[in-house]
Write a protein that binds this DNA or RNA. Sequence first.
RNA 1: GCCUCCGUAGCUCAGUUGGAUAGAGCGACUGACUUCUAAUCAGUAGGUCACAGGUUCGAGUCCUGUCGGGGGUACCA
Length: 556
Amino acid sequence: MRITEILESYVLAALAEAEQAGELPPAGAVEVVIERPKEADNGDFSTNAALRLARVMRMSPLDIANKIAETIGQKLELESVSAAAPGFVNFTLSPAWLQSQIPEVLRQPETYGNLMIGAGEKVQVEFVSVNPTGPLHVGHARGGVIGSTIANVIEAAGYDVTREYYVNDGGNQMRVFNETLYARYMQAAGHDVPLPEGAYEGEYLTEYAEGLLESEGDRFVAMDRDEATAGMAAIALQDTLKMIREDVALLGIEYDVWYSEKSMLENGKFEQTIALMEDLGQIVDRDGARWLKGQDGDDQDNVVIRSGGGGPTYFGTDIAYHHDKFKEREFSKVIDVWGADHHGHVDRLKAAMGGLDINPDRLTIILNQIVSFKEGDVAKRFSKRKGVMVTLRELVNEVGADACRYTFLSRSAEAQMEFDIELAASRSMDNPVYYVQYAHARISSMLRSAAEQGVDSSDADLSLLTHAAELALIHQIIDLPEVIALSAERTEATQLPYYAYELARAFSTFYEHCRVLSENEEDLPVSKARLQLIDATRIGLARTLKLMGMSAPEKM
RNA sequence: GCCUCCGUAGCUCAGUUGGAUAGAGCGACUGACUUCUAAUCAGUAGGUCACAGGUUCGAGUCCUGUCGGGGGUACCA
């Protein structure tokens, strides 16, 4: 059990006990929140339960806090529990209990911090899901980093996670892309074929078409236009998906499932979903198109199938896709990570789920805001339309995958961010990324030295760890499960880089004050205890870096 | 116009769901290297939390309005 859960149970038990003894009025259904005070003087943890209960109990919060503290009394985990004005209950952990946590960490080097709060529930995280019309650019990198990290965290919290990429290979954009490709191919072969309306003008597509002419020859030239376009499209789709797969892999991202939009059109899933919506009275026919009836909180109808045989819209297939997620594949929760430009789609899709008798709360949509870039003091604007596009690949080459991930994660998803390429790329102490990794490398180096000296720390006496820096470091290590619980509960990843930094800092402070290895025989007992401490620290750092999708270097 | 996100130190950003004296990194300034890795450590300065009201024991956090910035407002995705 996490320490905050233990403390929470103590408070609840104390309230019940005091009520039983007639010393406090009934607390009713109270939510006890355990938090970490900012001021060290206020203990390791605190709760404001008494402040919240003051009104219900019609008592002074300080009196309630005193009664709670008194009733809790002596506990194994606690050095002290006391009340403080205006009505907090403050907890200080006991050194003995802190020391006893080190073997717990060492016992689970690969899984420390993992929780079972998810109880194996099936959760799907869908992210990036860019239509396969070209290389990924920097904007997609942010969604990829956030999505993959949230998937990692939720998995660590005990959920059964599926990471999925939705391939929009069936829509209008795809048609335009394919027609552009056809035109470029024909142009490369010396035929004057005009670009379609709204064509993909990027240079990469021209180059790709030229490459296609080279590898496939001019066999498409003689073909009927539709046949040639379809033939090229099939090849381009495979190539583009391969490229996207390689792009995300540069950031350490792998998917369990690549789900094709087109497959739902071919296997009838889309039609079945439409039929179901008809049965449920959700479809309205008007102006030759088919609309999803406006739901509560959504004051207008939205087109599902275009008029004039134009086929389904993106919205239409997305309804079928999400119906499949919830009803066919039975995910109890679905998390979608989208770019902020999809904002308008959120309420629509949730409304559609409601119309299909799926609780919209089971669908969590994380919108990540736009990323702007600067290099030093120079703001850089990237625009896909103008063709001034920086690809994910270029970004990773420039700043490195680890720094890229850390920088994206340390900004909350819904905030716009400015990415300082120069800072992220600097391999110096200016960059918190390397501060964290350096701590891991330094510990690894010390453990190597200890091994070379033949020190076996397995029989260490951990009660020798009494220095303030040592206890503070243990405190920081045991915070990892709390960070995972909170991040999973709130489906956010921002806590992780900050936690990693704090852990690295606690280690650096310890390192400054406490010598680990020593030539002197008489230092050996302390040395052994500290070796166990730094090994536990290493595990905590490695686990956190792993969750963030970053490497934990043993040398730097 | 309407919807929505954002506005916190010179810069880039956190802020554990309403708690105690608002934090970190960078930058600036002062000090510490015969080192278990100085990619480090100790310290100083820097704030009207955009602005104005409101809610209450208590607001950076919740409500209303104003200003400024981003995104959306397609039978695109």
